[in-house]
Write a protein that binds this DNA or RNA. Structure first.
Length: 775
DNA sequence: GGGGGAAGGACCA
DNA sequence: TTCCTGGTCCTTCCCCC
């Protein structure tokens, strides 16, 4: 038997997929019937399979917990009981019942806004969202089991007449702003939780209100668009069965109120103040709100759900009333207890808050300290009494879901786009962040996050992409030879400061997120200053020193010494400096960045002089040609090459001479100046179907490669362009890995000329260190 | 052993 | 055919000092 909002029918229903009716307007539904439909159309899908996996994990957690419970001794229990009692005593001592906290929640907000603007919808089951996902539904739809967070196509099965209206956040934001203006009159420091929800502390307002003359508590009811009409006509159509719509509080309770009255006078108590607030919201927006009034935020939130929609509930501010209220409250109703916690508590026989109190000693032994402290507070009806707007934002992110994406260039291009979007958002709030996290969800709904913390905070698109693309590349390599089949990509930046200038740390961080044991260098062994650190490596194919060096500054200095060219770079901007180092290591100018970054130009001018002008011209010519072809539409849809910036960052070049093999990329390892072809550029194609022809070894390697030809599977001989040894394989992935390792060896040898290299973390075999070839 | 970063997950609207 | 987005907090694991 499942607890709370989910059910099990004994057919192996996943509790996490079954109908969650823990929402107003969903009482008394035929859950079994609804669940059967949900399962019928979910079963067998990748989403379902993943949910099943997650459910199993939760079940295992529960099994472990039960095992742990079986080993608890009386002595342990008694000790824990003492601990709980002490804690309870401490909490009771500071219980604060003096505040009047209000939680206001707009009723089916998005759906109500859409219905208001399109009255045709008022009698129809409708939801806001898309066939993929619904954000909310009206109360007609809820009768069919249609609710928020349900995919539209399932909702359509439950309710074939369902009207799905696309979201219009600009509109909701505008309405929300109107509502918030009213909130501010009651608590200027109110805490908005989302567009449709807020906490207010009206204690001060009530103090003032006590002595307010009636005139200040009088509000005009606008005829035609006012309460009378909304109660019987427009907005509350969503809430015909509302506990309060049948006995409109405004009309009946408010002094001076009455059917058709023009003037509404409200009282001075908390209920009257909240009633007034809701009245004003409705007058201004034609939308209804529900509210809960209680001595703390936790209780206020529960109370606002009590008489939803279009109602309010006040819990008296005394301990006894609070304890009575809490007794029968299902744990799932408490904010912070979700599906998993509910299930775990249910396994212990805990379904309501009274059980929580009774089993606290056991919970103290089975859950973490944070968790059981939270449970104890809930069981005592305690919650926060201070509404504080979080001054400081903790993180900022952006993510996107899409159809299956396999093509590398699409993945990197999207990554770039996300970085641009995030950079824009960061810059809007003048924030910078030190940790860049890449979030990936594959087609099986498995989510992975990969993070990298930088020595200094970053904010620009280029800076973010420099890290994100490495993280992405690492993941692509990790699943190789399989392609990375994505359905979501996100980019998260954790701001650590709000300053407009980058913060420069004095203590370098030296970590390598590359869990795939790919080749990388431990830079500490180089004869470089101690403050040189190693950033995330890209892949073994990227001559790892490229884009991988980060530097921290010494306080008081305004220049840095390049560890490669040993010249002073006149900058303290680490990004600029690291680009300089990248350039020196690669021996290739980062022409695009240089042209757009004057500081970089200054900082790297010394190294630039050493770069062959001819090659610069050649590169520029190639890119110009690539762009020309792009503009001319020669690139077929879906075969659009990587952006210039992306190509740069990856060390990739477009082969404009590829003819029919458009989409071919040339990989250029900057140190060795070797060109290899990369694969999988056509959408739909994958890395498992590459076309490769190794280049002829020796001599200066060309920037462009001859037209690629398919490799004949009957002809296994592939010759490594680096070591020139023929490899006994026709597996192109293996062959490419071999080339990677050889390339890295070349880099190593080059660096050995500058400094000693610590190869302890280099994943190559001893043979590789000797420059020999292997697969 | 403690601190801190990385990764994953729960939960919320 | 199709299961979101953006944010916070917590837990666990692991590495380093």
């Amino acid at each position: 038997m499942e607890t709370g909002g989910t059910s099990s029918s004994g057919e192996g229903f996943l509790s996490r997929m079954a109908l969650n009716d823990n929402k107003a307007g969903m009482e008394g539904l035929d859950r079994d019937k609804i669940n059967k439909i949900i399962m019928k159309f979910s079963k067998g899908s990748r989403f379902y399979e993943n949910e099943m996996k997650k459910e199993q994990q939760v079940n295992q957690r529960i099994e472990r917990m039960m095992l742990q419970k079986a080993h608890i001794t009386e002595q342990q229990l008694s000790k824990a009981q003492t601990q709980v009692e002490n804690m309870t005593f401490d909490l009771e001592r500071v219980r604060d019942l003096s505040r009047v906290i209000v939680h206001v929640d707009m009723d089916a907000f998005y759906a109500a806004v859409e219905t208001r603007d399109c009255p045709d919808l008022k009698d129809k089951p409708m939801a806001v969202g898309s066939m993929s996902m619904l954000t909310t539904s009206n109360y007609h739809a809820r009768k069919f089991g249609v609710r928020a967070a349900m995919p539209g196509f399932i909702a359509k099965k439950l309710c074939p007449n369902l009207v799905i209206v696309p979201t219009n956040f600009d509109k909701y934001r505008a309405v929300s702003a109107e509502v918030q203006e009213i909130f501010a009159d009651y608590d200027p420091h109110f805490l908005p939780m989302s567009l449709d929800e807020a906490y207010l502390d009206i204690s001060e307002h009530l103090e003032q209100r006590r002595v307010w003359p009636e005139a200040l508590r009088t509000h005009l009811e606008e005829q035609g668009d006012g309460l009378q009409e909304t109660v019987e006509g427009l907005s509350p159509v969503l809430f015909e069965d509302s506990p309060s719509s049948s006995s409109c509080p405004f009309l009946q309770d408010a002094p001076g109120g009455g059917a058709g009255g023009d003037v509404m006078v409200f009282g001075t108590c908390a209920e009257e103040a909240v009633r007034e607030m809701r009245f004003r919201i409705e007058q201004k927006t034609s939308l209804t709100a529900s509210a809960g009034i209680a001595p703390n935020m936790m209780l206020a939130k529960v109370c606002s759900d009590k008489n939803k929609p279009n109602g309010q509930y006040r819990l008296p501010s005394n301990r006894q009333a609070v304890m009575v209220f809490i007794q029968d409250l299902p744990v799932r109703k408490v904010s912070g207890i979700g599906n998993v916690t509910e299930k775990m508590l249910g396994a212990l026989g805990i379904t309501s808050c009274i059980h929580l109190g009774q089993e606290m000693a056991l919970l103290a032994l089975l859950f973490s300290e944070t968790a059981w402290h939270h449970f104890l507070e809930i069981s005592l009806g305690l919650g926060s009494t201070h509404i504080e707007r979080d001054g400081e934002r903790k993180s900022m992110s952006t993510e996107r879901t899409f159809g299956e994406m396999v093509a590398l260039e699409e993945q990197f291009s999207l990554c770039r786009q996300l970085c641009q979007d995030l950079a824009q958002d960061l810059q809007k709030e003048a924030l910078r962040g030190k940790t860049v996290t890449l979030k990936l969800k594959n087609v099986n709904f498995e989510v992975k996050t990969r993070a990298w913390t930088l020595p200094c905070a970053v904010a620009t698109s280029d800076e973010l992409f420099a890290v994100a693309k490495d993280l992405l590349k690492t993941e692509i390599d990790n699943v190789s030879p399989q392609p990375l089949r994505l359905r979501l990509m996100g980019n998260l930046n954790l701001p650590s400061l709000t300053a407009t200038k980058p913060k420069q740390t004095q203590t370098p961080i030296q970590k390598n997120p590359n869990t795939s044991a790919e080749t990388h260098f431990t830079m500490s062994a180089l004869t470089a200053p101690d403050n040189m650190t190693h950033a995330p490596t890209a892949s073994s194919t990227e001559a790892h020193v490229s884009t991988s060096l980060y530097w921290s500054t010494e306080p008081g200095t305004d220049s840095l010494t390049c560890p490669v060219c040993f010249r002073e770079v006149n900058t303290t901007d680490l990004t600029v400096f690291n680009r300089h180092v990248d350039q020196c290591l690669s021996g290739v100018p980062m022409e695009h960045n240089i042209h757009t970054d004057t500081e970089l130009e200054r900082g790297s001018s010394v190294c630039e002089e050493e770069v062959e002008k001819e090659r610069e011209g050649e590169i520029e010519k190639e890119i110009a040609e690539g762009e020309r072809r792009r503009e001319e539409g020669l690139m077929e849809k879906g075969r659009d090459p990587l952006s210039r910036c992306m190509l740069d960052s990856l060390g990739l070049r477009l082969d404009s001479s590829a003819g029919d093999n458009k989409g071919l990329l040339l990989y250029e390892t900057s140190t060795t100046n070797i060109s290899l072809n990369a694969v999988g550029l056509n959408p739909g194609s994958s890395q498992s179907d590459p076309r490769i022809r190794p280049l002829s070894p020796g001599g200066p390697r060309p920037m462009t490669t001859p037209k690629v030809e398919s490799h004949d599977p009957r002809e296994p001989a592939l010759t490594c362009p680096v070591c020139q040894v023929t490899q006994d394989t026709d597996n192109l992935t293996l062959f490419n890995r071999h080339v990677d390792l050889c390339l890295n060896q070349e880099v190593l040898h080059e660096l050995e000329g500058l400094a000693s290299v610590d190869c302890t973390t280099h994943n190559a075999t001893p043979a590789a260190h000797k420059g020999q070839c292997f697969i």
